[in-house]
């Protein structure tokens, strides 16, 4: 397991400036190398949960274990720097945290903070740019001169440059256009599949992540309402409504087809392409079956 939460609660201190939701009694396991989606209505505690993963927030009850680093409520926490290096946390609108005058310097900021040599940091910056599908020529540019989509990707690259084993992203696609959103999700999926990184994405657009996520965690009012695979989710989409979320159309269409043909046990097909392919095959089957039957009838 990459991340394990046991009976974790988090209560904001009374004098807190935050209006984020507290968490209670969370038991959560996130497998190493998996792509996990976290969803929940506004105010369900998603952002709070993410900040527990790299020790920005410490649990007020329970235990957070990330690889071999354990943070237990009430006990003195271990050095957080190694944890932060292994868990890259990308906040919402990460482009708003960029501050250097070139993209390269901004990308090197993280690695240098973790004691990486300047040469190595630059090397990592280049790799992170490539991972995010960005042109290396942009390294010399001022981050504020990039387009919105590029800036978002560069900001995510600035966390990737830390070479984290786990990458946690809070609404990474918010305000991007649909094509850029799909592109970004595809890039993140590649990080997971090709480089074996554990990717955790908080989203309120489940439809764009559904075809790719290995597992889902749904939050409701600060508690964990569901944890399981997309297949389990597809079997009982009503859980989404109970969490105040809309059932994505891809899931609704799959469910309708699956119900009609008793495909419930199968891995859900959540892209239009895959579902159309399956429907075509089903129609073909029916036609053949009907043909056979006719032949059979003819014999009688």
């Amino acid at each position: 397991m990459a991340i394990q939460l046991q009976q974790v609660s988090y209560t904001y201190a009374d004098r807190s400036m935050w209006k984020q939701t507290a968490l209670h009694g969370i038991n959560l396991n996130i497998a190493q190398g998996s792509l996990t989606g976290i969803a929940g209505a506004t105010g369900s505690g998603k952002s709070t949960l993410l900040q527990l993963f790299n020790g920005i927030l410490k649990p007020t009850e329970g235990t957070v274990q990330v690889f071999d680093i354990t943070i237990t409520a009430g006990e003195k926490s271990p050095k957080l720097l190694p944890l932060r290096r292994r868990v890259g946390l990308v906040f919402q609108f990460p482009e708003q945290q960029m501050f250097e005058d070139t993209v390269e310097k901004d990308l090197c900021f993280g690695p240098l903070n973790f004691g990486v040599s300047p040469e190595e940091a630059k090397e990592r910056a280049r790799k992170a740019m490539t991972d995010m599908g960005l042109d290396l020529a942009l390294l010399e540019r001022n981050p504020f001169r990039l387009s919105g989509g590029q800036m978002r990707k560069a900001a995510i690259a600035s966390v990737l440059a830390m070479d984290p084993d786990i990458v946690v992203l809070d609404e990474p696609t918010a305000t991007l256009d649909p094509v850029s959103r799909a592109e970004l999700i595809a890039l993140l999926e590649r990080l997971c599949r090709e480089q074996g990184r554990t990717i955790i994405i908080v989203t309120h657009r489940m439809d764009e992540l559904l075809p790719y996520a290995d597992s889902w965690a749904l939050l409701k009012d600060g508690g964990l309402a569901f944890q399981g695979s997309g297949q389990e989710l597809a079997a009982d989409p009503a859980i989404l409504e109970r969490c105040g979320l809309t059932v994505p159309q891809s899931l609704r269409y799959w469910q309708a087809v699956a119900q009609r043909f008793g495909l419930a046990g199968e891995k859900p097909l959540l892209t239009a392409e895959a579902l159309a392919e399956r429907i075509a095959a089903l129609l073909e089957e029916r036609k053949n079956a009907a043909g056979m039957e006719e032949k059979g009838n003819g014999h009688e």
Partner: peptide
């Protein structure tokens, strides 16, 4: 325009590409 069509439109087009003629469905039913 960097846009995507709504899911039912996409599904209808994918089906049409596979020789199945359907209109854009209003619902899964």
């Amino acid at each position: 325009c960097h846009l995507r069509e709504p899911y039912p439109w996409r599904l209808a087009r994918e089906l049409q590409n596979r020789g199945i003629t359907v209109d854009v469905p209003a619902s899964e039913k």
